[in-house]
Design a binder for these strands. Structure first.
Lengths: 136, 136
DNA sequence: TTCTTGACCTGGACTCCGTCCATCGTAGGA
DNA sequence: TCCTACGATGGACGGAGTCCAGGTCAAGAA
């Protein structure tokens, strides 16, 4: 993630302290923060940052393909900086903990032509659910 | 779905006109209505039905396993009455159209033990995305 | 059939998540 | 250093869903 700002600058992004702070907050493995959590942590580093800016910045990072949006439960969306390594998610049904996982196999190949209803299918998203060690 | 009310009655549910109307609205294949849509259609049959009742009834049907909740895009949840036939979903990225699909294979088996992080995995949800014939 | 009662329904207030907009500030090129 | 267009701000707004106090009624009892 450290080179995220470089990539963004290369795409013509103006680098501001707000954007730098959001990028810093979104750094690491198994990071799946809500926009509000990003805002809280960013505000720790830059107290005056506004919610709207966090939403804007996250939205831009998503549309640039640098960050992945994860809708876990119909509540707040979560933001996953691990967008360059294809992966799926494993979610605890009880506490909501999320892990990045890498299943074998190719689910796209598992959808027969007859089941595609004429759609051009381009993407598959797999969500595993269960109980994490602490909740089991 | 016609026997849904019978099943619910068997589980000790009090059958009211409101619940009957919600059950009637949720009938058919490839039905994926939002709570608001359910409310609108139900109100067509029973004008005084309230939003809260629709939410309560849908929530109860979901927790009884008679209806399945589908979070498509982080907007409103959709309700799928086809809960007794395991299936996945295919969604048009452009217009949001949804179809029930039946992939081959077993994605649960595709998650190696080492990728389970100690979770007790019990459920997989697969969402295919692409463009429907009208949007392509 | 009528009575009784606890489960159910109602509508409006409320929360949470996210978006919009007018205005102000500033990064970075000239 | 100056300019200016892009970015940030914060407050109002909107959609989706939940909560609650009070009124209503389904269904078993007699």
């Amino acid at each position: 993630m450290s080179d995220l700002l470089e990539r963004l600058r290369g795409r013509g992004w103006r680098v501001t302290s707000q954007r730098r702070v959001v990028a810093e907050v979104l750094d690491g493995e198994h990071v799946h923060l809500t926009a509000d959590e990003v805002h809280a942590r960013a505000a720790h580093l830059l107290p005056e940052i506004s919610r709207a800016t966090v939403y804007n910045t996250l939205g831009e990072m998503v549309s640039l393909g640098e960050v992945m949006e994860v809708s876990t439960d119909g509540r707040a969306k979560r933001y996953d900086p691990n967008a360059h390594h294809p992966h799926q998610h494993l979610i605890c049904s009880n506490c909501g903990a999320i892990r990045d996982v890498h299943p074998t196999g190719n689910p796209l190949a598992d959808l027969p032509q007859a089941e595609r209803f004429g759609f051009t299918v381009s993407e598959v998203e797999v969500t595993y659910r269960g109980l994490c060690p602490s909740c089991a």
